Computed example of a mutant assay.
Amino acid sequence: MSQKVAELMTEPATTVAPDTDLSTVARLMRDQAIGSVVVAGNDGTVAVVTDRDLVVRGLSRTGHPETLPVREVCSFDPVCVSPDDDVAKALRLMTESKIRRLPVVRDGEPVGVLSLGDLAAGRDGGSVLGRISASAPNG
C-alpha cells in the first residue's frame, strides 16, 4: 500500500491574506519556525510565499516591509497536491518543478504543507536531512 501525503504533511497550513504586510509574514515564519506560508484569498486563490521570496522579491525592492503586501512577492498558481495523493506523486512534482514545499489543498482550501523535511523525517528518519528535520528548531 502506498503512503499518502496526509501521513507526512504538516498541518494545518499556516495561511495569510494577500494584503498581509511582509513584516507580519516574516514574524509569523520566525515564530513558527517555518520557511513558507500559504497565501489564501477569499476568492479561492492559493499562492505561496517563502522566506527567500521575502528577501529577494520583497526586501530588495524600494518601500517598507510594513506596507508592502505579500501579494506583491508571492508565487500564484503553485504546484499543489491533495492529502489523498500518493507521496510518490508529490516527490515527482517536487523534482520536476524544483521546489521544496508543496501546499496541500482539499476542495480548494489549504489544509497543510508537505516539505522535503517532512518527506525526509517520515521516509528516511536516519538520514542527515531526516535527523535535522525531526529536531527542534533553533531558538
Rank of each mutant, 00 (worst) to 15 (best):
G44L: 07
S60C: 10
K89P: 00
V5N: 10
S60V: 09
A33R: 15
K89R: 15
P69S: 07
D85Q: 13
D124E: 13
C80R: 13
T67G: 10
P110R: 12
E109S: 12
R57P: 01
V48Y: 05
S36L: 05
L91W: 00
P65N: 05
G130Q: 08
V111Q: 06
D53K: 08
T10C: 07
R71S: 14
R92Y: 05
A120G: 08
G58P: 02
R100A: 05
S97F: 01
V128C: 01
V39L: 05
A134F: 03
D84K: 12
A6G: 00
L129V: 08
E11Q: 15
P12H: 10
A17H: 11
L129R: 11
R131C: 02
P78N: 11
L114G: 06
R57I: 02
M94S: 07
R106K: 14
S133G: 12
D21S: 10
V49Q: 04
Q32A: 13
S2T: 12
L91A: 11
N138W: 09
D124T: 13
D86V: 01
G117W: 11
T50D: 08
P137S: 10
V128G: 01
T15M: 09
M1W: 07
T10K: 11
G139C: 01
D31F: 04
G44Y: 08
S23M: 12
A33S: 15
R61C: 00
P103Q: 12
R52V: 03
N138P: 01
S75E: 09
A88D: 15
D118P: 04
T67P: 00
L91T: 03
L54W: 04
T62R: 15
R57Y: 04
S36I: 02
I99F: 08
L129S: 12
D107F: 00
E96N: 09
L114T: 03
S23Q: 12
T95L: 09
R57N: 14
V48R: 10
S23T: 14
